[in-house]
Design a protein around this nucleic acid. Structure first.
Lengths: 171, 171
DNA sequence: CCCTTTTCCGGAACGAGTCAAGACAACCGG
DNA sequence: CCGGTTGTCTTGACTCGTTCCGGAAAAGGG
């Protein structure tokens, strides 16, 4: 619901009590253009707008995600990825082959969206904040072809399939 | 259900077509004694049994998880953790403060245990393997005290709270 | 327009995990 | 029981994502 892109980036920064700086605007723009992108992709994208240090991008991403203006996700085996869509507790579909990520609406829309059947039994006293659901499988493209397809939002190089590919030659 | 610990470790290796070696037995023993442990904890634990190289532990963990004899989990912001409990598609409760992980039974017990409401709409043709659910919040201990409690299965040092702690001083 | 404070920069450093090549030891067959 | 084959382990260097540090720059209030 609260997709941050609908707000003017500078307004959204100010409203959060942050200074409006060129690096921040560049990163926000990069985020809008590359949903679920890894940090190095965002660095490259932000540099299309303006010269920014990699450290600044890391700083901006930290600040924004700490304030809840962007959401940070990190599927197992992947590096951190960021998205502007926040506020709804939507979930993610992740392709095991190419690492591509797609959003899926949450059934209830509010976190926690699931009732852990036996939370009290196994973790008495646990204070639940949210339930994160990750759907794993193969995207249409990868399911069709044996070879993993490149995912442009994954960390540069070829794809995130370094792990996947190596594993095949093990065992 | 299929908790690998109920099997004799050597039998379980042989049945998987693997050689029974000292490093593997040491790692399996370490896994049994330290559920959800990070790799460096497992290395230390395995060395209580026998001298093992860190690389051997990584190799063993890769081999075993590729064959499905151990399960590898990696909550966002955490390093890889391993557990012997496999076969059921159980889920995890993770403390945001200390990083401690607790198992929770899956409602249906088989993967995928959730029906993604709008999978076809957002990711047409996606072949779903499983749904991974992670419950985030605060464990009883951390919810009570402001200070995060050490989690002995987390990567050595103090706790996994390096990230958490730093963030508090940012913004 | 100046001052304070936040933010950014550059570079060094760190830690988890991987790669590579040779040594070693399980297991099989004889 | 022994020797050869092949899978496994060791050692050590290395990659990559991310963080730490300290000084420089610039945003915004007065």
């Amino acid at each position: 619901m609260t997709d941050a892109t609908v707000l003017q980036p500078s307004a959204m920064l100010r409203r959060a009590g942050l200074r409006v700086t060129q690096p921040r605007l560049a990163v926000l723009d990069a985020l809008a253009r590359h949903p679920h992108a890894a940090t190095d992709v965002l660095i490259a994208a932000a540099r299309e707008t303006r010269s920014v240090s990699h450290q600044a991008v890391y700083d901006v991403l930290h600040t924004l995600s700490d304030l809840g203006l962007v959401r940070r996700i990190q599927p197992a085996g992947s590096v951190a990825r960021y998205e502007l869509r926040v506020g709804d507790n939507h979930h993610h579909v992740v392709c095991r082959s190419c690492g591509d990520v797609v959003d899926i609406d949450c059934a209830t829309g509010s976190a926690p969206c699931l009732d852990p059947s036996e939370l009290d039994v196994h973790a008495p006293g646990f204070v639940l904040h949210e339930a994160e659901v990750t759907y794993w499988g193969l995207c249409a493209t990868c399911a069709g072809s044996a070879e993993p397809q490149p995912d442009l939002t994954a960390p540069s190089r070829t794809a995130s399939s370094r792990t996947t590919e190596k594993r095949k030659n093990r065992v």
